[in-house]
């Protein structure tokens, strides 16, 4: 590309130089030479002075007013873009934090609920066990009481049975023999018989 442009430029230049030489040499060309090289013409040097002044004004306006204005717009834009990016990044950070907090809270709540449930179940179990134990004890006590009552009743009945047996025996003996045996003797006999039976 560079070589091509250079070639084109060289071509143009040599062509122009050739044409210029021809024209300068041509008898009918009324210019004695290039007007650009006519340095005796005050206009040629005058444009340099004017050009310097205009260039200076151009430079001052550009460097003091115009270019800073363009630069400010570009800076504002990049500042705004980076600011927006910053805000977005902060928002994402906040959102991430919120999600993490939420997950943490959920985990904690789940663990707490599980613990509560377990505790309730344990309590219930303990209560039930205690009640069952209590009922068992009461029943056992009642059973024991009833048994002791039955035993006492039995004792009493047995004791009464002996008396009845002694009286019956006395009555029988007196009916049969007409003699009323001594109660102590009858009692001893009956007790012996009972003892034999039981044995």
């Amino acid at each position: 590309m560079g070589v091509m442009i250079k070639t084109v430029r060289a071509g143009i230049f040599s062509f122009a130089a050739g044409v210029s030489l021809l024209v300068v040499a041509a008898p009918c060309a009324h210019a004695a030479g290039m007007p650009q090289l006519d340095f005796k013409n005050p206009l040629v040097t005058g444009q340099v002075i004017w050009g310097a002044f205009i260039f200076l004004v151009f430079y001052l306006v550009l460097s003091r007013v115009m270019l800073p204005r363009v630069g400010r717009v570009l800076e504002d834009r990049s500042a705004r873009i980076s600011g927006d990016l910053e805000v977005a990044r902060a928002a994402k950070h906040d959102a991430d934090n919120a999600v993490a907090e939420l997950q943490h809270a959920r985990k904690t709540a789940m663990a707490e609920a599980k613990a509560n449930l377990q505790k309730a179940l344990d309590d219930e179990k303990r209560n039930t066990e205690a009640k069952i134990q209590e009922i068992k004890e009461r029943l056992a006590a009642e059973i024991a009481e009833a048994e002791s009552k039955v035993a006492a009743e039995k004792q009493r009945a047995f004791a009464a049975l002996t008396d009845i047996a002694v009286e019956t025996t006395q009555e029988l003996v007196s009916r049969v023999t007409g003699v009323r045996p001594a109660p102590a003797l009858v009692a001893t006999k009956v007790e012996n018989v009972v003892a034999e039976r039981v044995a």
Partner: peptide, 30 residues
């Protein structure tokens, strides 16, 4: 004839004032 260089000639503009200040079309275009 072909006058190829005439286009590069400078002329003072704005009459006498341009003459006095050597003000040609060149500064005008600048």
């Amino acid at each position: 004839s072909i006058d190829v260089l005439g286009q590069f000639e400078l002329h003072s503009v704005f009459g006498g004032l341009g003459d006095a200040l050597h003000f040609s079309q060149s500064p005008v275009y600048m």
